[in-house]
Amino acid sequence: MRTFRRVTAEVVALVVAGVVFLIPFSFMLLTAVKDSVQAAELDFSWPTSWPIVANIAEVVSARDYVLLRAYLNTTVLTVGSVAITVVFAAMAAFVLQRRAGRIGALANFLVLSGLIIPPAIVPTIWLLQALGLFKTMPGLILVEVAFGLSFAVLLFRAFIAGIPRELDEAAMIDGCTGLSLFFRVIFPLLRPVTITVILTMSVTVFNDFVNPLYFLPGDENATVQVTLYNFQSQYSTEWNLLFMDIVLITIPPLLAFVFFNRKIVAGMTAGAVKG
């Protein structure tokens, strides 16, 4: 009786998960590899012909290879902002965890504010313009850094709490101070959490739509998400191409997920469970 009930529960769970979660993804994939006539029916059917290469070629070459440029832009944005965030956040988190006091309390407050407060859009544009950074890649990179710092500091701080202070003291006796203590002793030890921060933030920045939309408008600067958004109106009849675009843009997060599933989940649940 018990095993029977467990099997039933298993089957029900599988079917529901299959219908609810797998069908949308299979629909994406199937539509992406159909020809435009069959794709226009928008049904859930097996492709009659498989113009996969032709669809990819057409999507990639559309609008003078905008997708390739978008991929390049997004890569620069993601690598740049994640690299800066990791170094800046790790440094700040180290002092924040090690040195309590009034300044530490203020820093803690600012970290929490950064997690909660929605960024003020137009004043940020105003400020970037005053600095000559509006509509530039460095400007957008700084925006991503500023909005991503809080979360990264939290993850780093929690990890640094597990590194004994005795280690700092030993390094100090060996003549390390400030910078050399951090970069030669502590930072290498942060490797596991650094990987988590890199993965979590890369996925966030890669998928970010709002900030590029506001702070880096214009076709030559477009990131992949903005390009996809623009394709929506351009390909409103050629669904196979639109969905091929979606598939091409979903590949990087999919790869990250396949190889680093545990790390990503750890990063996203980290601050959460401890509160």
Partner: peptide, 23 residues
């Protein structure tokens, strides 16, 4: 000496200029 407040500066400057001042 071991934990200089200067370590806050890089993150702090970006945070204050890009996030806090506009807010």
């Amino acid at each position: 000496a071991a934990y200089p407040y200067a370590f806050y500066l890089p993150a702090g400057i970006v945070y204050v200029v890009i996030f806090l001042i506009p807010t």
